[in-house]
């Protein structure tokens, strides 16, 4: 595109229609230069390229700085920092395992809930609801993603947790019997409540990407199935979902990436205990909640370094998950563009 101008200029020869000699481009009839300075174009391109490069510099610096500042934790505790269960700021002993465990378990439960529900929402919006209903409902679901994380946290602590412990968890305990998964008092604060709130927070991501990829399925494919007598569910199950599998997996990975790094909501409701419990009702912690709770109050250098190392771990985990998500989503995008 940018090389179009010089080409035009070189091709501009000959005489004008009134027979006078043509005015060379960039000059008025009196011969004065009117052409804007030629250096502006490359300079403009250069400046924009520089800022684009800043993005790469930023992510590289992010990795290097976190690695470097967190390194003392690894040199002090060795690689056992990753699997030690100690977290004792008073004695200066730190291990990442409880935080890593909490991060992975809370996100896994959240995905297990949000993925089917999010797909259900997408099916409702695309295949069932009439347009006058689908638009406002879709917007409302997206509003769930716009509510700040800290609001979920505060609401979770003061409204949802008491509700859970009064009405839901006792019943769950009764149904589950003496299962170790639901041992301990039903406080409404702990791994399961945190995962439930996470599920609601990531639901809109799965629902809205699901809706977008569902809408891309060619109408002819669906109509053929309907023409053969398939029910709506059979069309969804055998035409729509196989067609959009890549996009749906991408959406789930994206939501997983969000859940892993979600901070404020989890900090309020997970209970912030540095131990690993088999029970889903027991308090735990995640990498993000540990950072939010302790960072501004950490004094000793090894405490700060350990926290930064945790941040580095979170950065690495989420970057891998999100990169996978993007690759999957890009694949479905390019397939649709190539069609």
């Amino acid at each position: 595109m940018s090389d179009l101008t010089p080409g035009l200029r070189e091709g501009y020869t000959g005489t004008s229609r009134d027979g006078r000699e043509a005015v060379p481009p960039g000059r008025s009839r009196s011969g004065a230069r009117t052409r804007p300075a030629a250096w502006i174009d490359p300079a403009f391109k250069g400046v924009t390229a520089l800022f684009a490069g800043l993005i790469l510099l930023f992510v590289a610096a992010l990795g290097v700085v976190l690695w470097h500042k967190g390194h003392p934790a690894l040199t002090t505790f060795g690689p056992s920092f990753l699997w030690s269960q100690q977290w004792n700021p008073v004695k200066g002993l730190f291990g990442a395992l409880p935080s890593i465990y909490g991060t992975l378990v809370s996100s896994a439960i959240a995905i297990a809930i949000a993925a089917p529900v999010g797909l259900g929402v997408a099916v409702f919006l695309v295949e069932m609801a009439p347009p006058w209903l689908a638009r406002p409902v879709g917007l409302a679901i997206e509003m769930l993603a716009a509510i700040p994380s800290i609001i979920y946290g505060m609401w979770g602590l003061f409204v949802f947790a008491p509700f859970l412990s009064a009405h839901v968890l006792p019943a769950v305990k009764k149904v589950a019997g003496g299962s170790f998964l639901f041992a301990g008092p039903p406080m409404g604060i702990g791994m399961l409540p945190a995962a439930l709130i996470l599920a609601v927070m990531i639901l809109p991501f799965i629902a809205s990407i699901g809706r977008d990829v569902f809408a891309l399925v060619p109408a002819v494919d669906k109509e053929s199935a309907y023409g053969l007598g398939a029910t709506t569910w059979e069309v969804v199950r055998h035409v729509v979902i196989p067609h959009t599998r890549t996009g749906l997996i991408g959406a789930i990975f994206l939501a997983l990436g969000r859940a892993l790094g979600e901070t404020m909501a989890v900090t309020f409701v997970i209970g912030n205990a540095h131990k690993i419990s088999a029970s889903l009702l027991a308090p735990g912690c995640t990498i993000a909640s540990t950072l939010a709770n302790e960072f501004s109050e950490a004094v000793s250098e090894i405490h700060i370094a350990s926290l930064i190392e945790l941040g580095f771990l979170l950065f690495v985990i989420t970057t891998i998950i999100l990169a996978l998500a993007k690759l999957l989503l890009w694949r479905i995008e390019s397939r649709i563009k190539g069609r």
């Binding site: 993005i55 930023f58 976190l66 969000r258 790094g261 979170l314």
Partner: peptide
Amino acid sequence: VADVLVSAPSIVIGVF
């Protein structure tokens, strides 16, 4: 990279 950063955990940016 920008696409990945859009969803990156904000607390990690805070640590950085």
